[in-house]
Amino acid sequence: MLRPWMEMFRPLAEALRDLLPIVVVILFFQLLVLGQPIPNWPRMLYGLLLVLVGLALFVRGLEIGLFPLGESMAHGFVRKGSAPWLLLFAFLLGFATTVAEPALIAIAKKAAQVAAGEGLIEHTGEAMDAYALGLRLTVALSVGVAILLGVLRILFNWPLHWCIIAGYALVVVMTWFAPRSIIGIAYDSGGVTTSTITVPMVTALGVGLASSIRGRNPVMDGFGLIAFASLLPMIFVMLYGMWVLP
């Protein structure tokens, strides 16, 4: 009965390492620069504890459930050698892992609150939920497409930097047409998508694929997928903004 607790210890330590620097910097500023006690600190402490335990459980769950399954399937598809299935799997993997990304859930909710506060969408729970969900589905769709394109890139050996530069150019062009109020959240969504779930799953796919095709460097090609996944969401979210916002 002791083992599950031991298993939890390492993710807990990692979550603490994620959280500690933030706490230290904030404490430093509160106590030395601002010279004020933190208001309502028991509640903050309770919240931080929730974040800590939640993150540890989440990571542990991914490690024992999702990652082994995802990796073995990524390898299975690569071995199967059927391109259409592989591409479909790549798309769905990007989509499904992004929909469940906790940071994205939090940011989409915030964006909906801000948009409602400024009167861009109706200030009702329903309208805000719909906006947040739309935003998340857009980002998830874009990551799905990004992983699909990334797999195509590995299969056809397109040079990464040309793909990225073309993507940058598209972002610039889209910025011209997108409503001003979506640009901030669109640019941010590029960084949001690639965190806890998506990166390990996608890297497993990329590295597995690159190492089973002759003449590809697993490290170089495995890396490139993430770069796509942080570029396309910007473009898609700007399109979403043009569609739903005035």
Binding site: G47, L50, V51
Partner: peptide, 30 residues
Amino acid sequence: ILRGFAYVVAGMVLFLMGLEEAIFPLGELM
């Protein structure tokens, strides 16, 4: 694997609650 999924769900619930309680207020407070 099912146990892993249970952890993931429980972890996400706690994490999102903690964000509302601590991380968002702290950032705005600062």
